[in-house]
Amino acid sequence: MKGKFVTHEQVFTWMERERGLVVITERAQKKYHHLLPSHLITVKTAKELFFSPWEAVYRYTLQGKTWVIEEKVEHSSFPSFLVLLPCEAKAILEVTDVNFMTEDTPDLGYARRRRGVTLIIVGCERIEQTCFCSLVGCSPFWRHRESVFLFPWKGHFYLEDGEEKLSLSPFEDPQKAQAVETFFAETICTLPLPLPANFPEKLYAHFDDPLWQKMAWHCVNCGACTYLCPTCYCFDLSVDGKLRGLTLHTWDSCMFPKFTLHASSHNPRPTGKERVRQRVMHKFSYFPLRNKYYGCVGCGVCREICPVNWDIKEVVEGMVRQVER
């Protein structure tokens, strides 16, 4: 699709006007604070807008001798636009949507919130030290046909909005649009190469590799990386309240020992080694084997926040060397 152009001001005023309906991720805000309004509602991670750290699924109440179950229905108004970076958008479109919005059994809470929201992807002018999106099928200019795409270009925004979701009346400039495309293509050629073909299959064959033990050593098995990862979708269902209360849908993480602990006290993933392996394998082998996309979008957030500098990129590159040996 050929893109068009809008002025910074057009985008700025549009967002100002739609303020209550536009949410922006903290990372996008930090990156583009000079071009976008500063008072937009922000979220730490894109996923939390649809899949919040905790939410009530239903209420149960003992009335007389019978239990009454009432589903929680949200009435509050919900945003219509989410402004985010390419990797964050890929995480929603190709990971969390895939997990939650299955046709047979959609997660209703997620689906209801997600359906009404258009993603506005703002491409990256600068690649951060922790970014490695090009390794996993993403890029600083990653676009998606159902989403709007913006990219700052010589005083304007380059805009792809085939369905005209943002009533912006952009102007055309085929020559300039061509220049943008060329720039994207040329820049992508300079980025680190994608992981080798069939890496998910190859990694799967290295389930028993002794390297896992060594790699897992310094990870403290907290939930920081998985909670802030834009793709991690694991959750728990638990209850809160005795005679009346709520059934909760809360974030959970494969890094916690209790995640897989059986009542018999048997645990299929008893130590850090198995849990770290699960995290890496899930993102780089199991998820792509099932759903064709990587379960990691290379955003680098986990690398940045890990308290002990456990680095998934480094580990994956180590595994690439190992499988190619």
Binding site: F100, T105, D252, L289
Partner: peptide
């Protein structure tokens, strides 16, 4: 097989063995 389970529908992510 038995694994710890929550959702029962392949969403909560805890009962996997490989993929």
């Amino acid at each position: 097989l038995e694994m710890r389970m929550k959702c029962g529908v392949g969403k909560c992510g805890r009962c996997n063995i490989g993929p």
